[in-house]
């Protein structure tokens, strides 16, 4: 349902090489053990060395999949300290998928990305203030809530 949609194809192939494994086939047992697979759909973002940089389980319809996978690619860039690439993707998520479940994560890490790029910037607290305003019921609001303590 999700993968045949052209915008989903574009989202995946513009950032990643797609590889797929059927967990019912014995020939895949080795790679599934290597990845500590437990549930499907099981989606990972790996770097070229095979290091896992992002993961999630469970079905997502196309818009939610696109937002979630973009957050994955952004997080992968961020963990490699490729701040400009990460920032561009987080901004894209917030522009095109502002109501997606992944959007609060994008806003939380947009602040982190800009702070890591420039620790003298006030972008961390600025974006987290946006997060409190735009997504007050999200888990990511809780993750920054220590900043709300008196």
């Amino acid at each position: 349902m999700t993968y045949p949609q052209p915008p989903v194809v574009e989202t995946i192939t513009s950032h990643a090489i797609p590889v797929q494994f059927d967990n019912s086939k014995t020939e895949n047992a080795g790679v599934l053990a290597q990845l500590h697979h437990i549930w499907t759909p099981d989606v990972r973002v790996l770097d070229e060395g095979g290091t896992e940089l992002y993961r999630w389980d469970g079905f997502l319809p196309p818009p939610e999949f696109m937002a979630r996978s973009l957050c994955g690619f952004a997080q992968a860039h961020l963990r490699r300290r490729e701040f400009e690439a990460a920032e561009a993707i987080y901004v894209d998520v917030l522009t095109r998928f502002s109501t997606a479940y992944a959007a609060p994560e994008a806003l939380y890490y947009l602040g982190v990305t800009r702070y890591r790029r420039d620790p003298n910037s006030d972008e961390l607290l600025a974006q987290w203030a946006n997060l409190r305003s735009r997504y007050p019921m999200s888990e990511y609001r809780v993750k920054q809530s220590f900043k709300e303590l008196p």
Binding site: V19, N23, V45, E48, G50
Partner: peptide, 30 residues
């Protein structure tokens, strides 16, 4: 259509060559 690869090592090599990540999808046909 997504042209899924079936070999993780080959996908990693392509990712290196094309400066991309690898997206792994593990599914159950049932």
């Amino acid at each position: 259509m997504i042209e899924w690869m079936g070999d993780l090592e080959a996908a990693r090599k392509r990712a290196r060559d094309e400066s991309k990540f690898v997206l792994v999808d593990i599914f159950n046909p049932g």
